[in-house]
Write a protein that binds this DNA or RNA. Structure first.
Lengths: 338, 338
DNA sequence: CTGAAAGCGCTTACAG
DNA sequence: CTGAAAGCGCTTACAG
């Protein structure tokens, strides 16, 4: 059945070592005779020999596997990243061990332990937690390189790839302002997240640069989910000085806003202009078609793999972290007040 | 650093075998003294011993890993399945090696080889190919149980989980007919796919049951992608007897139809009623909101894992394949002609 | 040019 | 109650 070096060895009367050398293309290096090389290759071919990677991994202390932990693989935002990570990985003969933390720290911790136990060569993690110290603790004596993707943390020195969230929000607000909006609401994701903080900063800075005074009440919400979008916009619309435009920090938040708008029978975009983080294939067909801030998570994924790959090879770049610019996809959900 | 049975053995002056037995909860079975048990456990705890799973896998010829090959992990349809597969798997202490075949047979073949090489305990595959014989060939002497998910094939005896595509299409057409539609178009996915054939059968059967004659020209298309949706609907609308309603075989096809409708400035749903396979979170906010045929891919994923799990345990159920009913989510994209 | 041996970190049948 | 040994399938330093 499944051939091993041993079984081939027996059949051919050649030592496993020699066979291993031939099959690993080290025939020259070891000056193995043409004759044996031919015999070995022919026979291996014939029986369809495939090396046992777990044996190889054990002896090499290297598994050619990288672990990927994502908060929600069913979310296209993450699955797109996963796809591009996998693509890069398989091109470099790496395989991906995928784990879904489901936004739960507990599951993430278990996943991390699994990956450690399985001796992955590196880990790409979109962290669910908020404290650098928490991860510092976990990564200590794990001896496996880690890279953060999308989300990252203060207080821990781990390379990361993320969108340029600051600039993304800044650009969005500037865009709104140029359309004549002055009262702009912001519905945030989890405020403990650095990415959220960055967006908030970008939001405020844009207002400031255009001399628009900032109203704390227009900035609320605390979660990347539909529920938060719904509740927040309902709240916002009750303000005496209610916003003419709203910036949503995620596609899910936007869904909540759309839900509320529908319920309230708002006339979009006249009653409310919307711009939202995260592009999606339906944006064009929603009424009004949605202006979005596209994150290039294909690039983020690919870059994340490159980072971890370099780390595995022992190449530590001096500035190992990357911010990838977002892009505004203009459609018709922003009403021009000018 | 990283503790091993050996290092603990040295430190404690207890043989690796005994330590292994203690740490694997076989102390009673081997009647190991309370004293040693305590010492071992305490020390293992202290140094944070974690078993090396690759060593364990090698010796047990069992990796507690299952391979998952999907045609496009970035598609929410598949990533939702992936999430639920992973969820089930991790609950049973299995890990998932994820591969994206990108709808390419060549990549799929490589992925399969990788998984074989990595000695996964089982494989969940959504096949990209069309011929049972092709897979029969590949699975031969692989010695690893395989289960198909979503797509399956004739001419090969592999358990599968899929939607009840026949019934899904039948129900959709019946639904349309009950709204008064008699001229109904169907835009198909890849016609080599059994799932597509099943839907076609369901489509035809419904027409037949309601005594509506079937017009070959209203049935076209050959791919689960936007382009096909676009081209096909354009074609359909040129018919003298053009359809009043259209059934799309996938979310992507539907996107193509929406694109065409927008270009043609059709007045939906009066000018054209639409029902489409695959639910999506934006369906509610498209104009008109989209009536969809929801596939329960959460259940499909979970079931697929259960199937492979049973197979791994050596339990072969007599009828190992499952069809999961779809569900119509009614919205406003179907115009009532009655 | 090629083989025998050791070792990667585990587990388990065999002794005692 | 516990240890020594063999073996899972590989690779590579050491000999010759």
């Amino acid at each position: 059945m499944k051939a091993s070096l041993k079984s081939i060895s027996k059949e051919l009367n050649i030592s496993p070592g020699t066979i291993s050398r031939v099959l690993n293309g080290k025939a020259k290096e070891y000056r193995i005779s043409e004759a044996t090389v031919k015999r070995v290759k022919a026979y291996a071919q014939k029986v369809g020999y495939t090396p046992n990677l777990v044996a190889k991994s054990l002896q090499a202390s290297k598994s050619f596997t990288i672990g990927l932990i994502l908060p929600d693989i069913s979310n296209p935002f993450f699955s797109t990243m996963a796809k591009h990570i996998e693509q890069q990985a398989s091109a470099m003969h790496y395989s991906i061990l995928l784990m879904d933390s489901d936004e739960q720290l507990e599951k993430e911790t278990k996943a991390l332990q699994q990956l450690y136990s399985r001796k992955v060569d590196g880990i790409i993690l979109c962290p669910v937690g908020f404290e650098g110290s928490h991860y510092k603790e976990q990564f200590k004596d794990m001896g496996i390189p880690v890279v953060f993707v999308d989300r990252y943390l203060k207080g821990i020195d781990v390379p990361f790839v993320s969108s340029n969230n600051y600039k993304g929000a800044y650009d969005a607000v500037e865009f709104l302002i140029q359309k004549g909006h002055k009262i702009i609401g912001l519905i945030q994701g989890d405020q403990k997240l650095l990415t959220v903080n960055e967006r908030e900063k970008g939001f405020k800075k844009a207002l400031q640069d255009y001399n628009i005074s900032f109203n704390t009440k227009l900035l609320l919400g605390n979660g990347f989910n539909e529920e938060n979008g719904y509740v927040s916009i309902m709240q916002l619309l009750k303000e005496k000085n209610k916003p003419t435009a709203i910036l949503c920090m995620s596609n899910q938040i936007c869904l909540g806003v759309l839900k509320a708008a529908k319920e309230l029978q708002l006339n979009l975009p006249q009653d409310l202009s919307i711009i939202s983080f995260d592009e999606n294939p339906y944006a064009e067909y929603i009424t009004p078609s949605l202006t979005t801030i596209k994150q290039h998570n294909d690039k983020m994924g690919a870059k994340a793999f490159n980072l971890i790959y370099d780390l595995i090879q022992g190449q530590k770049s001096e500035d190992p972290s990357f911010l990838i610019d977002t892009e505004i996809i203009e459609r018709r959900s922003i009403f021009a007040l000018l």
